[in-house]
Computed example of a mutant assay.
Amino acid sequence: MLSYQHIYHAGNLADVHKHSLLAWMLEYMTRKDKPISYIETHAGRAIYDLKADEALKTGEAAMGINRARQWFDPNHPYTKSLQQTAQTDGVNAYPGSPMIAVHRLRETDRITLAELHPGEHSALELALPTAICRRTDGFAMAHSMLPPTPRRGMMLIDPSFEIKYDYETIPSHIRKYARAWNVGIIVLWYPVLTSSAHGSMLKILQNEHPQALRHEVRFPPARPGHGMIGSGLFVINPPFGLAQEAANLKARFDTLS
């Protein structure tokens, strides 16, 4: 859906959950001296101004990264990306997942990003000239390029879920991705909703990928009546140590309840 723009939600608690574990996984993968492929299906603009009117309107960053920054020590890869962004773009800038990938990866690694929204895609290209930025449907792009070269790597699937049938079609996409790229780390982010709209999708995914890691955190709604009360990651072929890192993060989120 081309109406969605993440600037309204940048730096919220779901971003803290998703981006801190993404940064950890990418840093873990680069410990080996082998190139990797990083693919993202719904990239957004890569960098966000948390003092922009859109961000201030929702106040989600104030409840999110501004509150949770202290959870991470200076050597955590997420902290490093936050600091790199502040140094290059100012203290009010927040890195999206493509920028975190650029921070954590090396010149030998290959980054391919999809973003369909024309304005977001233009901003993405401007922010990340070294990445391959395609203005196309991310699900279709991933199907067309799997398995990638290099074969070792990760894909982040991070749709807005404003298109309601995403919950119905995502299991089929992931089934095909996992079959075509059986060594790839496939990461799906999803919202935890009061409506439980994500429930049937997760049931299918868990039945089809029983060895995957499902990790969820809960937090208070951003405003009264807001339907998102948590954030989830479903990770196929999770890296060693991710479950413990995720458990440590959940303990931090539990203090918010």
Results as ranks from 00 to 15, higher is better:
184 G>A: 08
138 G>H: 12
219 F>Q: 11
174 I>W: 06
163 I>R: 10
125 E>C: 15
33 D>C: 04
172 S>A: 09
180 A>F: 10
129 P>N: 13
5 Q>V: 15
161 F>L: 03
136 T>E: 14
129 P>H: 11
251 A>F: 01
130 T>N: 12
153 G>I: 12
78 Y>S: 09
257 S>A: 07
257 S>L: 04
176 K>A: 05
20 S>F: 07
87 Q>Y: 08
22 L>P: 04
141 M>Y: 06
213 L>I: 10
202 L>S: 00
63 M>V: 05
207 N>A: 15
161 F>T: 00
40 E>R: 06
163 I>N: 07
235 V>K: 12
144 S>T: 05
145 M>W: 09
193 L>Q: 08
202 L>Q: 00
8 Y>D: 06
158 D>H: 08
82 L>C: 08
188 L>Q: 03
90 G>Q: 05
82 L>M: 07
18 K>F: 04
139 F>G: 11
61 A>V: 02
79 T>S: 15
235 V>S: 03
189 W>E: 00
61 A>G: 10
227 G>K: 13
114 A>D: 02
10 A>S: 15
188 L>S: 01
224 P>W: 07
17 H>M: 13
74 P>G: 07
99 M>I: 08
191 P>Q: 10
189 W>S: 02
82 L>H: 00
157 I>D: 11
33 D>E: 12
34 K>F: 07
111 I>R: 08
69 R>V: 01
177 Y>P: 03
170 I>E: 08
178 A>Y: 00
157 I>R: 06
254 D>H: 02
162 E>Q: 11
245 E>F: 04
217 V>E: 07
187 V>S: 07
192 V>E: 06
134 R>C: 12
125 E>L: 12
165 Y>M: 05
150 P>L: 11
47 I>P: 01
195 S>Y: 01
134 R>P: 10
76 H>A: 04
